[in-house]
Amino acid sequence: MKLFVLGPSVFGTTTIECTPSTQIRDLRKSVSERMPGLASENFRLSHWGRPLRDEISLEEAQLADEFTLDVSGSIRGGGGDGGSTGAESRSSYLEMYAEKKPDKVDPAEERLASWMTCRLSGNWLTPPCCADRLGLLYNKDSVLEAILNKKLPKELSHISAKSLTDLKLMPNPAFSERCKSTANQANFQHAGAAPFVCPVSGIEANGRSRFVVLRRCGTVVSAKALKQLPESVEELVGYRWDPSEVMPLNPPKDEMEAMREALVIEHLEAKARKEKKRRAAEIKGQKEKGAVGGASSAAAGPHAAKRYRASEHAPSYADAGVYASLFTSSRAGEAKETYMCRATSARGMNLT
């Protein structure tokens, strides 16, 4: 088959002989040979404005005999450089949007969400609630179920039933089911009010103010009330609280990391104390066992280990050998004793 290729005005029209199975890539090379100075990588072939891909054949491109093809030059710099996007570099343009960037989270909404949802299940916080040693809040039912089923995530492996602190949270009268329904996981600011408040100062637990828990009783109060009104807090809990039992709730990330490191150190120290106690008990047991064995040997006397010999206790009027023959120990190993006689193998021995 014969095709006409219309090139730039300098070259004019060229006739190319080819077959239906010829690929467009090979056809471009033939055109480049007929038009010196025009490299095959610097132009594209098209038919009536339709670009022809290099990997297809003339038959696949639906080109027939005596069709006219156009030569169009490639524009340098097009596509992938922040400007225009040529068809040959469209993939570079698409790659810019292939990876979806995560949406930015408002820190205020994130803090409010930590006081409204369970850190494990993501459900709304509903009493009974509890906190772990890092000050994170959970629905107690969800945590206990995960512990029993051994389905705690790796990042929450520090949680155990003994390490949880039951929380006494003061409900916010201004918070209602309507506030909960208007809030969602995408925007917690729509709630308008926090679900819990400080029982002393009335400050809302919305993440803007610092809150703590007294681990001995589980009462949750604001840090401001604990600092400015300690007497009121003592009256509320019914005892004189100690600073060592104060634990922050939903602390900042840097403070949480410090608490996590302290928790790891405490775990290692407890493990070392347990191992030391076990070794001390083991050494004490060995000493007691040795003392009992020594006392029993001393009580037995010097003749306890001496073997009894019948010949040494024979009467003065008896022959020692004859007296010793009355006892089986004097003939140990010579004959086996049965129920018929003392020594069947020796039956009749003295009769000959």
Rank of each mutant, 00 (worst) to 15 (best):
P195Q: 08
P195Y: 02
P195T: 01
F196W: 07
V197D: 08
V197I: 13
V197F: 03
C198M: 04
P199H: 02
V200F: 05
S201Y: 00
S201A: 07
S201V: 02
G202L: 01
I203F: 01
I203D: 10
I203V: 04
E204Y: 02
E204M: 02
A205N: 05
A205V: 11
N206L: 10
N206P: 11
N206I: 05
N206A: 14
N206R: 10
G207F: 03
G207K: 01
R208I: 07
R208H: 07
S209T: 06
F211S: 07
F211V: 14
V212A: 03
V213N: 02
L214D: 09
L214E: 08
R215Q: 15
R215C: 12
R216C: 11
R216L: 15
R216W: 00
R216V: 15
R216T: 15
C217M: 03
G218I: 00
T219E: 04
T219L: 05
T219H: 07
T219P: 07
V220D: 01
V220Q: 01
V220I: 06
V220C: 01
V220R: 00
V221H: 10
S222N: 06
A223W: 06
A223T: 08
K224M: 11
A225W: 12
A225T: 08
L226M: 10
L226V: 08
K227W: 06
K227E: 13
L229Q: 01
L229N: 03
L229A: 08
P230G: 00
S232M: 11
S232L: 04
V233T: 12
V233E: 13
E234I: 03
E234R: 03
E235H: 12
E235M: 09
E235N: 12
L236V: 11
L236A: 00
V237F: 05
V237R: 09
V237D: 13
V237L: 15
Y239L: 06
R240W: 09
W241H: 06
W241C: 01
W241Q: 06
W241F: 05
D242P: 09
P243M: 01
P243Q: 00
S244F: 04
S244E: 14
E245W: 08
M247Q: 09
M247R: 07
P248S: 00
P251H: 02
P252C: 09
K253W: 02
K253H: 11
E257P: 00
E257V: 11
A258P: 09
R260M: 06
R260S: 07
E261P: 10
E261S: 13
A262L: 10
L263V: 08
L263A: 09
I265T: 14
I265H: 14
E266S: 15
H267M: 10
H267K: 11
L268I: 14
L268F: 15
